[in-house]
Amino acid sequence: MKQPIITISREFGSGGREIGKMIADHFSIPYYDNALITLAAKKSGFVEEMFEHTDQKPTGSLLFSLSMFGGMASFEMPLNDKVYLIQSDIIKEVASKGGCVIVGRCADYVLRDMPNVVNFYLHADLDTRTDFAIRMRDFPPEGAKEKVQKIDKRRASYYHYYTGKKWGDAKNYDLCIDTTKLGLEKTADLIIKYVDLRA
C-alpha cells in the first residue's frame, strides 16, 4: 500500500482525535479534523464561524437530495448542505495529495471510491467517555452524560442524513475498536499494525 489514507469515525470521548494524531505522527502524514473547517472556509469565502455553527448539523430538509439529483442551483441549498459539499471537496483534495488521517466528516463515505483508504470506528463505554468529557473538555459534571449522548445522537443523524448509512455499523468500516479495553496508545498501535498488514 502507498501512504495510507486513514479515516476515523468515533463516539465523542472515545479518543479519536488523540489516536488520530498518534497515527499521523507514526506514518509522518498530515492530520485533519477541525482544520478541515478552516480549509473549507478559505476555499469557499464563507466566514469560518459560519462553518463552525453549521458543522455536523443536518438540515433535515429534502433540498440536499433535490439539488444533487434534480439540477437545482447550489445557491438554493441550505447552508448546512453547502458546508457538507465544500468539506467533501476538501476531503477529496487532501486525500488526493497522499497519505493522511481524517477524523470525522463522513470521510469514510466521501472517500469510498478511492484506493488506499482504511476506515476505523472507535467507541468506548459511556462512563469512560463522560469522564473524558469532564476532565479533557471541561464539561460540567451535572448533565455531562446526557450531553455526550446528545453529541453522539447528532453525529449519527448527520452521518445517516448525508450517507444513507448507519453510523457505527461495522459493515461501513474495516475495523471497529473499543478504546475502553485498550486505551489510546494501544488502540493507535493496533490501527498502525492493521494498516501495515494491509500494505
Rank of each mutant, 00 (worst) to 15 (best):
M1V: 12
M1S: 09
K2D: 14
P4N: 00
I5D: 02
I6Y: 13
S9P: 14
R10V: 01
G13D: 06
S14Y: 02
G16M: 00
R17D: 06
I19Q: 15
G20L: 03
I23G: 07
A24K: 09
D25E: 14
H26Q: 05
H26R: 09
S28K: 14
S28C: 14
Y31N: 07
Y32G: 07
Y32R: 10
D33K: 13
D33N: 13
D33E: 11
N34E: 09
I37H: 09
I37L: 10
A40D: 06
K43Q: 07
G45E: 15
F46W: 09
F46H: 15
V47R: 02
V47W: 13
E49H: 10
M50R: 10
F51I: 05
H53E: 15
T54A: 10
D55E: 03
Q56K: 05
K57H: 01
K57N: 04
T59W: 05
T59V: 08
G60W: 03
S61P: 12
S61R: 09
L62K: 11
F64Q: 00
S65H: 05
S65G: 14
L66F: 06
S67P: 14
F69E: 15
A73E: 01
S74L: 10
E76T: 14
P78R: 08
L79F: 15
N80K: 08
N80Y: 13
D81S: 04
Y84N: 02
L85E: 06
I91L: 08
K92H: 04
K92T: 14
G98S: 02
G99F: 08
G99Q: 12
I102P: 01
V103W: 00
G104V: 03
R105M: 08
C106Y: 14
A107Y: 07
D108G: 11
D108N: 05
N116Y: 15
V117N: 06
F120E: 04
Y121F: 10
H123Q: 07
H123F: 06
D125L: 03
D125F: 06
R129P: 11
R129V: 14
T130M: 03
F132Y: 15
F132G: 04
A133T: 12
I134G: 10
M136N: 14
F139H: 02
P140A: 12
P141N: 04
P141I: 07
P141A: 05
P141M: 05
G143Q: 13
G143Y: 13
G143N: 08
A144T: 14
A144S: 12
A144I: 07
E146T: 05
V148Q: 05
Q149G: 04
K150W: 10
K150A: 12
I151F: 01
K153A: 11
R154D: 06
A156S: 01
Y159H: 07
Y159W: 09
H160V: 13
Y161E: 04
Y161A: 11
T163W: 03
T163V: 03
K165P: 14
W167H: 12
G168W: 02
D169Y: 05
K171I: 13
K171F: 03
L175R: 12
C176N: 02
D178Q: 01
L184S: 11
E185P: 02
E185L: 13
K186D: 05
T187P: 06
A188R: 03
D189M: 10
L190N: 12
I192E: 01
L197H: 09
